[in-house]
């Protein structure tokens, strides 16, 4: 079976050349890929750079609360977390675009949060004013509410969604998890790849 395979490889080289001669074929696209991606990325950066984050749904006061909750879901430690990634802006945008129907969940949820804060921490003001330990205590008490489920979903999604949605700013989320976002790679892809018995195109025995 070796022979037909090498014959085929010859054929595909010919079609590769034929393809690239016809101009804007997808063969051309692939060869230009890294450049195109770099250009896209640049455009996105420019689009982002004007922003000190304008809010469309939350008031300043609500925003501080939401940001504090998000920062407990993905905290800042030796690496940046939800706060630095801008998950607040992701959530705000989601609530004014593709997740509008979740607005009441936040409006009511923030009231529940306030009530729980007062209940558990005597003389407390806002949730955002609590210590980290107190915040965790309050969130544990509302962990099973629809509000917490929703803000968890949004915070985590925003943290690793494409940066243009407002969270994952400067690819903070992707960098943390090790997602390279080059969108074109060559083997070996991971640690174990080099150790394949049947590597591409070769036959054992």
């Amino acid at each position: 079976m070796k022979k037909p395979i090498s014959k085929k490889q010859g054929a595909s080289r010919r079609s590769f050349l034929a393809g690239s001669a016809t101009g804007l074929s997808s063969v051309w696209l692939a060869s230009q890929w890294p450049g195109i991606l770099a250009a896209q990325e640049h455009a996105q950066k420019v689009a982002r750079s004007g922003k000190p984050g304008k809010l469309g749904f939350f008031s300043e006061e609500q925003a501080a609360e939401v940001e504090s909750v998000a920062a407990q879901i993905i905290p800042t430690d030796e690496t940046p977390g939800a706060r630095e990634a801008g998950c607040l802006y992701f959530i705000d945008r989601a609530l004014t675009t593709f997740d509008r129907e979740q607005q009441p969940v936040y409006t009511q949820g923030l009231e529940t949060l306030q009530a729980k804060t007062r209940e558990l921490v005597p003389n407390a003001g806002k949730f955002s004013g609590l210590t980290a330990a107190q915040q965790i205590q309050v969130l544990k008490a509302i962990e099973t509410t629809p509000f917490f489920a929703q803000i968890r979903l949004h915070t985590i999604t925003g943290f690793v969604a494409n940066p243009e949605y407002g969270g994952n700013q400067d690819k903070i989320g992707w960098n943390l998890i090790g997602f390279e976002s080059k969108f074109h790679y060559a083997a070996p892809f991971g640690y174990y790849d080099g150790q394949s018995e049947l590597s591409a195109g070769t036959r054992k025995g």
Binding site: S12, S15, G19, V27
Partner: peptide, 8 residues
């Protein structure tokens, strides 16, 4: 896995 029939 390789270019084929004018495709990438």
């Amino acid at each position: 896995s390789q270019a084929y029939r004018g495709r990438s």
